[in-house]
Design a protein around this nucleic acid. Sequence first.
DNA 1: GCAAGGTC
Length: 628
Amino acid sequence: MPNKILCVAEKPSIARAVAGHLSGGQQSVVSFAPLDISIFVKNFDFHYNFPPPWGSCQVTMTSVIGHTVEWDFTKDYQKWNSCEPHHLFDAPTEKTVGDRKDIAENIKTEARCSRALFIWTDCDREGEYIGTEVRDIARTVNPNIEVKRARFSNIERAHILRAAQHPVELDERQAQAVAARIELDLRIGAAFTRWQTKLLQSIEGLEQKVISYGSCQFPTLGFVVDRYRRVKNFVPEQFWSIKVMHKRDDINVTFNWDRNRLFDRMMVIVLFEKCLQAKKARVTKVQKKPTKKWKPLPLTTVELQKLGSRFLHITSQEVMSIAEKLYTNGFISYPRTETDQFDPGMDLRALCEKQTQSPTWGPFAQNLLNGAFESPRNGRNNDKAHPPIHPVTYVTPNALANQNERRVYEFIARRFLACCSSDAVGEQSTVDIQYGPEGFHASGLRVIARNYLDVYVYDKWESSQPLPQFIEGEEFVPTEANITDGKTTPPGFLTEPELIALMDANGIGTDATMADHIAKIKDRGYVFTRVRAGGDQQASGMEEFAPSNLGSALVEGYDQIGFENSVSKPFLRKEMEEKMKKICEGQMERHDVVHSTIEQYREMFLRAKQQSRLLKDITSRYLTDDGV
DNA sequence: GCAAGGTC
């Protein structure tokens, strides 16, 4: 057997980058793609000096494209009427290569003549599992091939070389945790989906619909319904407040009540009378203090989705598909990342330099290079796999296909430059007064240096009208004082950035899949979106989510069945996540997790089945008389 | 006709 080592990455871009480094960045990299494999996958051939016992080796570096192996029920059970849905909790399953035969064949061909396999998948749980897929494929043709894993968290040259020199083993536990998750999602999702689809099929309007259940889609639906109920059940409350105005140097100053507002009208009237009786107000404190508006953190996927929706009014799914395209064209870095800190080794100035070509934000970038550059802030998250999202090269607007692509690219570029700029600086002035028994305050802001705000046009921070001069201890008769009243207002329907934030906080989906789950529950007809009218400035024009009658019915139906942990709440998913962590830490075995979780769901399933009448009645009621 | 997770 030749002294050959096969290296396999999780995606083509990593294979290319690693091959570039290991081959010494020489043009001697031979790249060829056998005609029968995916147009995206390339094999790179070169020589590299691995640590002992391998030494100087011939290397083929290639990649898969994410998962290669499909996990499904055996053929007999894939047909919907092949069995009772609850049998799917125990039905036999099998792993197949499915439509990835070309990629699997490529690995087999190369593995046949290799003495070792180096796994270069992303260093996260899913990557560990994908590594085992690659290993298992290679072993079908070369059972004795030695398997190693390269550990790397970015694709900088020195880091990659170090990873090649210090290979470790695949983390079997992490892979087992993922295997448990895959099996559970498959069995539970398929069982409940088939059952409830068939149950509700007889209801008018649902004859042709698939009523899917999934451990992520249902909690996502739950968030929408939850907010909808809070809006609907909201009872406004009346409140009263006192406002004091004073005109000085032609400036009208409004002093707000320290108590803000009270819900007792008589009390407010009594206090107001006491203020008036005092006639004069006394200035108790005049203060000016420096203040800052912090520049944003390096950009993560979740933030990109939230802000794309909030500032650009583009849905998270479209933002992600645009980001994907910008990435494959080499314009931005990898768009799926949880990291909000730049690696200290990265040459951020060089990236700023590229942006100087822009006619709009180029001057700002130039100014950074001329000395205004400041290192980005560090957030708390680091997935050890990818850097924050940033532009890797400048793109002229004409090179992009449409307006939304331009706007997403522009956002990413501006956000990056903002990170390399400095905080905005201002001065906050406050004047406190005592009027009778009550305290009031007025405040003003003077923006001294806009700094990052000049490029990050999405943040607003404006100087207010300056406060006239007041002197501590002075007394004056207010120009006007009166009682104001108002009503508490209901929260708005859920917006997409809010929904993403809830999913993120509750561990529903991953950065790469959250947008898909949202699209899925829309597609299934559980929720719909509409443009929010009027209302407060920031949110108007934005899409808001409301449940359909079907969506409301499902949540209500399962709630009434009375599970200990409702399927429309995030707790069950959280529990699964915790069990996965325990597998990773060696505190639980994969099979125990799968077994105990299946039993938990089997019990819920049987209970739901016993009460199927209830779910059906509620659903048909919601669908026939508008849910009320 | 089912899930969620990779990635193109």
